[in-house]
């Protein structure tokens, strides 16, 4: 880091170690292939330069066995690379249950993080070491991409969707967060830092943020404010599905399909209720698109999730 020239990025997460191994293996194979091609080209160019005495007799005419040979070899090598890469990718992008969940909202040009306890940060993310941290990415405006080079993870934050990505940091320290999808004038300064802390220090940090309400509690207030509780509340007379225990389960919809109630589903239900009418209920819910910002949605969803537990 302090050197005037850097050859290799720091690696500070289990994700990064796995990606490094794959990268080094592929670099080695590609280097070998390149050296073979360059070596052959160079030696042919020297040996068969015009005027050299090397024999040109018996020019290779039948070429098919060579061609089938190297085509097969290439194919086998490629399939190995593909399978390894795909396996790591599925592991990287299949979201595990995190020890900690943080909501990340991208907007021109900053990253806003919201911890479940209600702690908020801008362009900074404090996390404990050796814990699986699951991030829920949303965007308030254009497409951004959340990128931590030292962890080798990246995922776009797409407006209108929730995306998830996870990491498990292995070394305490401060690492760069970048936006890697062009998002306007200050794209290059849409940066932040992730601060990896020992668990005790992290607990202390959480406590010192002076937070009064957790994300779910704030969500509960919004739940009443926007009139959600009038129908979805326990004493409601309107025929609306109860939200207790809905998160994580399977929901059967009016159109006969079944979906898993994850964050993306909950978000879609709030914004586009008519598209996701639950089987057996009348389509009476007003849609809230345009009325709730990403911040509020995050809180409402945190509240609904808290009902699940």
């Amino acid at each position: 880091m302090d050197h005037w020239i850097q050859f290799w990025p720091r690696t500070a997460a289990v994700n990064g170690e796995v990606v490094n191994a794959l990268y080094i293996a592929e670099l080695a194979v590609c280097g070998l292939i390149l050296m073979t091609v360059v070596g052959l080209m160079f030696s042919f160019c020297v040996r068969y330069r015009a005027g050299s005495t090397a024999s040109r007799a018996n020019l290779t005419e039948k070429t098919w066995h060579w061609e089938i040979g190297w085509t097969t070899a290439t194919l086998v090598l490629l399939l190995i690379g593909f399978v390894w890469g795909a396996a790591v990718y599925i592991w990287l992008y299949k979201s595990p249950l995190g020890d900690l969940e943080v909501y990340v909202v991208g907007k021109q040009w900053m990253w806003k993080m919201e911890h479940p306890g209600g702690q908020r940060e801008i362009d900074a993310l404090h996390v404990p070491v050796d814990k699986t941290v699951r991030l829920l990415l949303a965007s308030q405006d254009v497409i951004h991409s959340f990128f931590i080079p030292a962890f080798r993870i990246k995922h776009d934050a797409v407006p209108g969707q929730y995306e998830t990505v996870w990491f498990k940091a292995t070394k305490p320290g401060t690492y760069l967060i970048e936006c890697s999808e062009f998002c306007g004038t200050e794209h290059a300064h849409m940066k932040g830092e992730v601060v990896v802390m020992e668990p005790a220090a992290f607990a202390l940090w959480l406590r010192d943020q002076g937070v009064r309400e957790s994300l779910a509690q704030e969500g509960e207030a919004l739940f009443r404010e926007h009139g959600c509780s009038g129908c979805h509340g326990e004493n409601s007379t309107v025929h609306a599905p109860s939200l207790v225990g809905v998160y994580g389960g399977i929901v059967h919809l009016q159109d006969g399909s079944a979906v898993r109630a994850d964050e993306r589903y909950l978000r879609d239900c709030i914004l586009l209720p008519r598209t996701f009418t639950v089987a057996g209920y009348p389509p009476v819910m007003p849609d809230f698109s345009g009325q709730l910002g990403e911040d509020d949605l995050v809180k409402l969803i945190a509240y609904i999730k808290s009902l699940a537990r």
Binding site: V18, V19, L22, E26, W84, G85, A87, Y89, R152, I153
Partner: peptide, 8 residues
């Protein structure tokens, strides 16, 4: 083209 490397 290796999906996992492309993530980075």
């Amino acid at each position: 083209a290796t999906v996992a490397l492309d993530v980075h």
